[in-house]
């Protein structure tokens, strides 16, 4: 029901980089230059592969079309792509939580969300204009598996209810507006 080609999704790319200076930066260029939004980079320096390469895991957001361009661009630059795609996290959900976030232990709230679901919190912005003892809001981006968005929202709803937090949800399935 939604225009899925225009919808920004979360993707994970696993690369193996040659252990040379500048390789990581060189690998990130094709992503940024092709409209990918970098969410996180996990550079496993201490975990060299048998071939002497360094594994790097990059989480990013892009439209499906842009993601294809990014993968092509990386291949053109001769990077070893171990895994590219939406296998792990294919849906990005953005929610806003409001209430006494700090007094109700925000990091506990976040870990409850990650424990109760398979979702991972990929981005967090906090706004507490009246100080941390007053009502504040947090915008969370959650990456989750395809088709699990409703389960994740159900879990977040009950966690929010327990702590008397207000949740502003995204539209449910099919509602990309």
């Amino acid at each position: 029901m939604s225009d899925s080609q225009d919808e920004v999704r979360a993707y994970t790319i696993r690369l193996e980089l040659v252990d040379e200076p500048g390789e990581l930066l060189r690998a990130l260029h094709p992503i940024a230059d092709n409209g990918g939004n970098l969410l996180s980079i996990f550079h496993e320096r201490g975990n060299v592969t048998p071939r002497g390469h360094i594994p790097v895991e990059v989480d990013l957001e892009a439209t499906p079309e842009r993601f294809d361009t990014i993968v092509e661009a990386l291949q053109d630059e001769n990077f070893d792509i171990i895994q590219a795609g939406a296998e792990r996290y294919s849906e990005a959900l953005t929610i806003v939580l409001s209430g006494h976030l700090v007094n109700t232990d925000l990091s506990d709230t976040l870990s409850n969300i990650q424990e109760a679901t398979d979702a991972s919190v990929t981005d967090l912005s906090l706004s507490a204009p009246a100080g941390t003892n007053d009502v504040s809001s947090a915008r969370l981006r959650l990456a989750t598996e395809e088709g699990k968005a409703n389960d994740v929202l159900d879990a977040v709803r009950s966690i929010a209810a327990e702590k008397d937090l207000t949740i502003v949800e995204p539209l449910t399935a099919g509602g990309s507006a």
């Binding site: 806003v96 204009p129 809001s137 915008r139």
Partner: peptide, 22 residues
């Protein structure tokens, strides 16, 4: 119970908040 800060965070992300009936 929606504070101004929730709208501000939505806006930063190119979104806004609406009371939606589904």
């Amino acid at each position: 119970s929606i504070p101004g800060s929730a709208l501000e965070l939505a806006q930063e992300d190119g979104r806004t908040v609406r009371l939606i009936g589904e």
